[in-house]
Structures are given as C-alpha cells and as structure tokens.
Amino acid sequence: KKKIKIYIENENGEKKTIEIEVEGDIDEIAKELAKKYNVKIVKIEP
C-alpha cells in the first residue's frame, strides 16, 4: 500500500487535499474518485 495525496477542485473552485492509502493503479483510483465526487483532479503526489 502507498500513501498518496490527491489535490482536487470542486465545481465551486474550492480546493482540497485528500490523503489516502491505495493499492494498485493510482491513476485509475483517482479517476474513480473524481467521477464519484464530481471533482477535478489537480495533482497527485506519491
């Protein structure tokens, strides 16, 4: 498992940072999160 930080922006332009532990393809997981929460991924840090 890797701990990563995902910087997101919602439709109101509010920026947030999510810190999660992931296993597998980080890009795939980030895309799923973006779709699920309707946010834009700004940056992903390993």
Rank of each mutant, 00 (worst) to 15 (best):
K5Q: 06
K35W: 08
P46S: 13
I18P: 00
E28W: 09
G24W: 04
V39W: 15
A30V: 15
T17Y: 10
N10T: 15
I26W: 13
V39F: 15
E32G: 07
V22C: 10
K40T: 11
V22L: 08
K43H: 09
G13A: 03
D27V: 10
I4S: 02
P46M: 15
N12I: 11
E21Q: 06
I44S: 02
E23V: 11
I6F: 15
E14W: 13
P46A: 12
G24S: 04
V39C: 13
E21K: 03
V39S: 13
V22F: 12
N38I: 02
K36L: 11
T17F: 10
E32P: 00
L33K: 00
I26S: 04
E19H: 09
K40C: 11
K5N: 05
K40I: 14
K31G: 06
N12T: 09
E19I: 13
K2W: 15
I4E: 00
Y7K: 02
Y7C: 06
K3L: 12
I18D: 00
I41C: 07
K36Y: 13
P46F: 15
K43T: 06
N10S: 12
K31T: 08
I44R: 01
Y37H: 05
I29L: 11
V42K: 02
E32I: 12
G13Q: 04
G24V: 02
T17H: 08
E9R: 08
D27A: 10
K16N: 11
K3V: 08
E19T: 12
K43M: 10
N12Y: 14
D25W: 05
D27T: 10
G13T: 01
K15M: 15
E19R: 04
V42H: 04
K40M: 09
K2V: 14
V22P: 03
I26L: 10
K5W: 13
K43P: 02
K1P: 10
K31Q: 10
K5C: 09
N10M: 15
I8L: 11
E14V: 11
E32N: 10
K16G: 14
I20E: 01
I4M: 12
E45R: 04
I20H: 01
I18W: 15
K15V: 14
K1M: 13
T17L: 07
D27M: 13
V39H: 05
N10R: 13
I44D: 01
I20Y: 05
A30M: 15
I41Y: 04
N38F: 06
I29Y: 14
K40E: 04
E9L: 13
I29D: 01
E45P: 02
K43Y: 12
D27N: 11
I41F: 05
E11K: 13
K2Y: 15
K1L: 14
E28S: 09
D25E: 07
A34T: 05
I44L: 04
K15N: 09
N10P: 01
D25P: 07
N12E: 09
K16P: 01
Y37F: 09
E23L: 09
G13P: 00
I44T: 02
K40N: 06
Y7Q: 05
I29F: 15
K2P: 07
A34M: 09
E32D: 08
D25N: 11
D25H: 05
N38K: 12
I18K: 01
K1H: 08
E21I: 12
E23I: 12
Y7P: 00
K3D: 01
G24I: 02
T17E: 06
I41K: 01
P46H: 13
I4K: 01
T17P: 01
E23C: 14
P46R: 09
E23G: 06
V39K: 02
K15P: 08
I6K: 00
I4F: 15
E11W: 15
D27E: 11
K31I: 08
E14I: 09
K43L: 11
K2H: 12
K43W: 15
I29W: 13
T17W: 14
V22W: 14
N38R: 11
K3H: 09
K16Y: 15
Y7W: 13
K5I: 12
I8A: 06
N12H: 13
I26P: 08
I4V: 13
E23W: 14
Y7R: 04
I6D: 00
Y37S: 02
K15I: 15
I6G: 00
A34P: 00
P46Q: 14
N12A: 12
E45W: 10
I41D: 01
E14F: 12
A30G: 03
K3Q: 07
K36C: 14
N38S: 06
K36R: 12
D27Q: 09
I20T: 03
D27I: 10
D27C: 14
I8N: 00
E9A: 06
E14Q: 10
N12L: 13
I44W: 12
K16E: 09
K3F: 15
E23A: 09
N12S: 10
P46C: 14
I4W: 15
N38D: 03
I44G: 01
G13F: 04
A34W: 06
K40G: 03
I41T: 02
D27S: 09
I26V: 11
K43N: 06
I29A: 11
V22S: 07
L33I: 13
V42E: 04
I29K: 04
T17G: 03
I29H: 04
K1G: 08
I26K: 01
K3E: 01
L33D: 00
K35M: 08
I20D: 00
K35E: 06
I41G: 01
N12Q: 12
D27P: 04
Y37T: 03
I44K: 01
V42L: 15
N10D: 13
I8W: 14
K5M: 09
I18T: 01
E9N: 04
V39P: 01
E28M: 10
G13M: 04
A30P: 01
V22M: 10
K2D: 05
Y7G: 01
Y37Q: 03
Y7H: 08
E32W: 15
K3Y: 14
L33Q: 00
V42W: 06
V22G: 06
E14A: 08
K31Y: 10
E14S: 07
L33P: 00
K16V: 08
V39I: 12
I4C: 08
I41W: 06
K3R: 14
G13E: 02
V22D: 06
I18L: 13
K3M: 13
V42I: 15
E19Y: 11
N12G: 07
N38H: 10
V42N: 04
A30R: 05
D25L: 04
K36T: 06
G13R: 03
V22T: 10
K15C: 10
K15R: 13
G13Y: 03
N10F: 15
I26D: 03
N38E: 03
K43S: 11
